[in-house]
Write a protein that binds this DNA or RNA. Structure first.
Length: 311
DNA sequence: ACGCTTTGAAGAGCACACGG
DNA sequence: CCGTGTGCTCTTCAAAGCGT
């Protein structure tokens, strides 16, 4: 890290944290305490209004009124931000389409002309692919209203499209979590219409209104058996080659090997039942489901239905 | 190779907080 | 009030990095 970046780092850290001592700053910026003392000295010479407190509970503060003129980023920081921005666009963060280009310009304009050309050149050869992204689009109001509901701690009123019976339902929801999973954006929370925890696909929210009523479910977790994203444990016998092929997959994240050999015995804790089912049906010679019994019955029923249909 | 700058380690001195 | 612990300030010395 260059000295100028470190000086900026000290200013931003003190602005954010309030008071920090030399040891904390040295750990944060990964330099010795002596270097921090020298940097503090340099900042004082640059007329940055620092206040030092000696003795126990001492440290440094920056005058609250000190104004940081503009954001300064290194080339590495710009590259990281652009990577994150590109991933976000690929994940279709709601409303990102219109904001993407402007935000990208703002970030890249932090760099000088020469570095800008270099970074543009770099991003011609870097791309991100997120498979199975569900929605074509989101309603414009959805994300801003959900974000506001979390910041204000208030309930929302939504009109939600249920594809099974092709109907629009209206309901009051106390949002608890906004998340991206399995190719789409979801909102989970307490549904007052059903009186239980429900997860909603954002692209199926047609209308949304922020209510005046306070959300009392923000701090306490809501448990629900009908929740799509709960973890279940699966027990398999699996061939070593297939295990090697799939062990890095997202649905295998919580995997325990019970017996290691040409035929392996594993336990998988996963919330992606559809992917597990596809794995079982696509690899009948290499994987055998041992449990749980209820899920085995589910697989049997699927296979019976397939047989009835195609024999 | 040389000079300059930056950095780090160690130690001494001073100020302050706190408990006995 | 005094001893102890913590933290800022300052000095000295050595080493590494960088440009010429």
């Amino acid at each position: 890290m260059k000295k100028t970046e470190r000086l900026n780092g000290i200013i931003y850290a003190l602005k954010e944290k309030g008071k920090l001592n030399c040891k904390e700053l040295s750990e944060l910026l990964e330099v010795s305490e002596r270097t921090i003392y020298r940097d503090i000295d340099a900042l004082c010479q640059l007329k940055v209004p620092l206040i030092s407190y000696e003795g126990k509970n001492g440290g440094y503060e920056i005058d609250k009124s000190y104004f940081i003129p503009s954001i300064q980023l290194t080339e590495q920081e710009v590259i990281m931000l652009l990577m994150v921005l590109n991933v976000g666009r690929e994940m279709k963060i709601p409303n990102m389409g219109s904001e993407y280009q402007l935000l990208r310009s703002k970030i890249i304009n932090v760099l000088g002309e020469a570095d800008r050309t270099k970074v543009n050149q770099l991003f011609k050869h870097v791309s991100f692919h997120v498979d199975r992204v569900l929605p074509k689009d989101y309603s414009d109001k959805v994300l801003p209203t959900i974000l506001e509901s979390f910041m204000e701690g208030k309930n929302i009123y939504i009109t939600y499209y249920a594809p099974v019976n092709e109907e629009m339902t209206e309901r009051k929801v106390s949002p608890t979590k906004l998340f991206y999973s399995d190719g789409g954006w979801y909102l989970s929370g307490f549904c007052h219409k059903r009186s239980e925890k429900r997860t909603f696909r954002l692209d199926r929210i047609d209308k949304i209104e922020l209510m005046d009523e306070l959300n009392t479910y923000l701090e306490k977790p809501i448990q629900s058996a009908s929740d799509k994203f709960t973890f279940k444990e699966y027990h398999f016998e699996i061939s070593k080659p297939l295990y090697r092929l799939i062990k890095e997959n997202f649905y295998m994240e919580n995997c325990t090997v019970l017996i290691d050999g040409e035929k392996m015995n594993i336990k998988v804790l996963s919330k992606y039942e559809e992917d597990i089912t596809n794995l079982i049906l696509s690899n009948p010679y290499d994987i055998k489901l041992l449990g749980p019994e209820a899920y085995k019955e589910h697989i049997r029923a699927l296979i019976r239905e397939l047989c009835n249909r195609y024999i």
